[in-house]
Computed example of a mutant assay.
Amino acid sequence: MNGIKLLSGLLLILAVNSVQAKKVPTQVVYRFDDHRYLELKGWNCEGELWYIDTQKGIRSNPVGQFYRVFTRKFVHPSERYIALTGWSAGGFRVSKDYGQTWRTAMFSPGPNEPDEMNQPPSEDVISFTVVNDQGFLLTKKSLYMSSKGFDDPRILPGGPGIPYTASDGTSHKIEPRAPGWSWGMVYMTKRGLEESKSQFKAEWFNLPDKVPEVKNYQGWDHMRCNMDAGK
């Protein structure tokens, strides 16, 4: 009888150890400041991405699975508009309400690149900076930007719309019922903007030619991830 009890105890210990060994690791992969950070839950630096703001009590899930950390320079003092990209920098998950809800933002169609492609090769990406509710993806050949952090009031419900003249001389109007991309939801270069009717919307006026300087940033300038976490 004692032998059976001993064997049962050993099996229980082995079962508990097995469960503990398989527990998916969670690690902080980026800090914006002392109360906002990103957690990655998964093996080999890939998995679920979580956004946490301890001051506002926000815990949200920008990417449900298969997120791989962005390895290039990443500076993000912006708080209302939060934009994240991953390892390949092929698109963005953005929040316009301090990280409570998330949507997908993409590169605009059209000739953003010198070769007429709409997005840069992953290997050309140098850095991603998000400041003053605007994102800036710097590459070896171009600077991609989201719009400034507001929608042109002329195309909000009840607005008069925006009349404009296209490059072929024809007259058109951007109507409130079909305003196009809302602020922060698309990234393009100045080259791409020249081919887009967004150029007539106020949130795209007077864009900079370089990434704005960020001073006294308290967060990390790169994501950090331990490939051996949980092993």
Score class of each variant (00 low, 15 high):
P179I: 12
K210F: 02
M223P: 06
V125D: 01
F136H: 13
P163T: 01
L193A: 03
W183K: 05
E203K: 11
L137V: 04
G149C: 11
K148D: 06
N206H: 14
W220L: 10
N216S: 15
V94G: 03
D97P: 13
D152Q: 13
E213H: 08
F92H: 01
G158F: 07
P114T: 03
R80Y: 10
G180I: 00
R80Q: 14
L193Q: 00
L193H: 00
F205D: 14
M117I: 03
K141L: 06
P212I: 07
D97Y: 13
I162M: 01
V186A: 09
P121V: 03
H222W: 06
A89W: 06
Q199H: 06
P208E: 02
L84C: 06
K96I: 14
N118R: 07
D133G: 09
Y98K: 11
D115T: 02
P176I: 02
K173I: 12
S108V: 12
F128H: 05
G86T: 07
V131S: 13
P121F: 08
T189Q: 02
D151V: 09
S198Y: 11
P160M: 05
K197G: 04
R93S: 15
G169N: 04
K190P: 04
N118C: 03
W87C: 11
G169T: 08
T165V: 15
S147D: 03
G90E: 10
F200Y: 15
Y187W: 14
T170M: 10
E123K: 11
G184T: 08
P77Q: 10
K140Y: 01
P208R: 02
D133L: 07
G90L: 05
T104M: 12
E195T: 12
I155G: 00
T85V: 11
I82G: 09
T129P: 00
K201I: 05
T85Q: 05
G184L: 04
S182C: 08
P114M: 08
Y98P: 02
R93P: 04
P111M: 01
W183H: 14
M185C: 06
W181A: 15
G91P: 02
S147A: 12
Y187H: 04
P114R: 00
V211R: 00
P208C: 07
I162T: 01
D209E: 15
T139A: 08
W220C: 02
S95M: 11
V186T: 09
S122W: 04
Q134I: 12
K148A: 08
V186K: 03
M188Q: 03
A83W: 09
K210T: 13
Y164S: 01
G86F: 05
G169L: 08
V131C: 09
S167C: 03
L84D: 00
Y98W: 14
G135P: 09
